[in-house]
Design a protein around this nucleic acid. Structure first.
Lengths: 341, 341
DNA sequence: CTGAAAGCGCTTACAG
DNA sequence: CTGAAAGCGCTTACAG
């Protein structure tokens, strides 16, 4: 455990101890160059003994990188204030999952506040960006890629289906699985509370819903809900559905916190779940798990999505080619809210 | 908007354009040295014109920093899996608030997965750490400070009251304010669901509760709840209280998600809020806001706490002395759950 | 009051 | 197969 005066073991110390040049040490440790296997291992052993840790800052500096990945979450406007949506279970899990995945590759994950201009981005200077739920023709993708910062999105840009740099759930299949489940549980008037957004996830789900209804000869009934005041707006939308002449016998609340509003609307009206109305939610979350009765949900496995996104981003950063989007399997969690006794 | 071949405007370019040396540019831009005010401004103007942005990586490298602050949240063990608590509204707001505060000073905020060894920490190498809710004699503080990484905690280490590097709410005052409010609303048997933890926040609150009860000649009634399965454990603890011979007429659920359990216990028993039981929660959160009735809560203003913590950490990083902990004012949010008609 | 030079710890052409 | 040298962009003693 020798150390230089400064306290830090540098590549020079290792070179000196191993009796080789710094070039050789660098090559040995990074698996580059054409060294004898034996030399390579001897140098690795020496480095280990000395407790050598390459300086990530020096590496980053030398290579013109920062060692940082930025995570950009959607924002919503609540009474004039901008919040990022990390408050939602889905995004929070995306955040932890990304942090873990990035960390394991030696990258730091940065939570970014809302940034608009190139200058603000340059200040942060991330090596790459994971962008959640891009809007149609999302300008941030062009801006960042234009600055040489690769972007991988979670869910695709709806207007750029050909862009392969995204990770997503199988939105269409998920909606169909859920509809099949409700149908086989006896539902015949299945309504959908869908988000008022241009996100691919929303569009795919809604389209699958319409097709499925047409195929089964059942009447589609869609209410659109803003994504700013999730609980309150979904409550009002659910009220309107429940008070209609022919109320639904099942309700799919697509986004997080929509089930909060829907549950409240039911409770007020004495509508029992699942007896009078089956309720399911498009994104699993704690509320769905802890409700009484527990609410059937699609688990998008956000932690896996995050891992896949960070993985794809790192491949791009390493100059490997990425040809295909990555589809992360989701799970239908059937719970009491859609099980008729 | 001149640029060098490499595409990047460096300090040399600015020096050349301004007809001075790089030293002078560096000093001018960083407010160091003894330059004429006029020179300083002229150089700043030139830098601006050229669109010069100092490379944060180069600065970090030169100064032996990384430009990164790590945020460490408490973890909980849910059926064998470790989760960090970013899922709780309080910590999520701490996270966004810290990210914003760090960003505005040119630092990146890193969400860290659970790290134990010095080696793991060295890999990340943050310049400083914001540690939430340290345990008594928290070993992470010693380890990190020992590595030369300053730590500022949100809430103090209960065994190290003399250590000034923390930010906290006024836990004692908050509890007393809440008790006074309940008392003046008519409550006479106020029970407390307290967390089973050695966190300063818990200890302070419980102690204030005991003193207040003694001062008012009212019987204290405390149930301890694990911090792993927040909803389920608080539910069981609340059940026990409600089923006792002399059930409380008010209940303080100290930690997030305890009100979920308490509400469920009440609903099952037909206990009406606030008519039969007043309910209040020690940390404001969405559930408390959106419940029907809405639940009275202490708003710890976590965003302010985060800002104060990052501020204190940066002062330490800049070598300024920090003598005093910082107490961030909290707000009592009185809502329907403690307002008797 | 300002500048020339060293050097932070690495990687990467390039020479041998 | 291995090494000497340059250089990434900055800051900081130090010299004048």
């Amino acid at each position: 455990m020798t150390k230089t005066a400064g306290g830090r073991v540098t590549i020079r110390d290792v070179a000196a101890a191993a009796g080789v040049s710094v070039t050789t040490v660098s090559d040995a440790l990074n698996g580059k160059g054409k060294l004898r296997q034996e030399t390579r291992e001897r140098i690795r052993a020496t480095a280990n003994e000395l407790g050598y840790r390459p300086s990530r800052v020096a590496q980053a500096f030398r290579q013109g990188r920062t060692g940082t990945i930025a995570l950009v979450l959607p924002h919503r406007d609540v009474s004039g204030n901008e919040y990022d949506m990390i408050g939602l279970d889905y995004y929070m899990t995306i955040a932890s999952g990304s942090a873990r995945a990035a960390f394991s590759e030696g990258y730091a994950l940065m939570l970014t506040p809302k940034l608009s201009t190139e200058d603000e981005w340059r200040l942060i200077g991330p090596d790459g960006v994971v962008l959640c739920d891009p809007a149609a023709s999302d300008p941030r993708i062009d801006m960042l890629e234009g600055m040489g910062i690769p972007v991988v999105s979670i869910e695709r840009d709806p207007d750029r289906p050909e862009r392969p740099f995204y990770v997503s759930g199988d939105n269409e299949q998920n909606m169909r699985d859920l509809l099949d489940h409700l149908h086989s549980a006896g539902a015949r008037r299945i309504a959908l509370l869908s988000a008022q957004s241009s996100w691919a996830w929303t569009i795919d789900g809604e389209q699958a819903y319409q097709s499925w209804c047409a195929e089964h000869g059942l009447p589609p009934q869609v209410a659109h809900v803003s994504v700013d005041r999730l609980e309150a707006d979904s409550y009002h939308a659910a009220c309107a559905l429940l008070d209609a002449d022919e109320p639904p016998d099942a309700l799919i609340a697509s986004a997080e916190q929509y089930s909060e509003g829907a549950t409240r609307a039911c409770r007020e009206r004495g509508v029992r779940i699942p007896e009078d109305l089956m309720l399911a939610i498009g994104i699993d979350n704690r509320f769905a798990q802890q409700s009484v009765p527990a609410i059937t949900a699609i688990d998008l496995c956000p932690s896996d999505q995050a891992g896949a996104a960070v993985g794809m981003l790192l491949r791009r950063l390493n100059g490997e080619s990425v040809e295909q989007p990555s589809v992360v399997p989701s799970l239908l969690r059937v719970r009491a809210s859609t099980r008729r006794p």
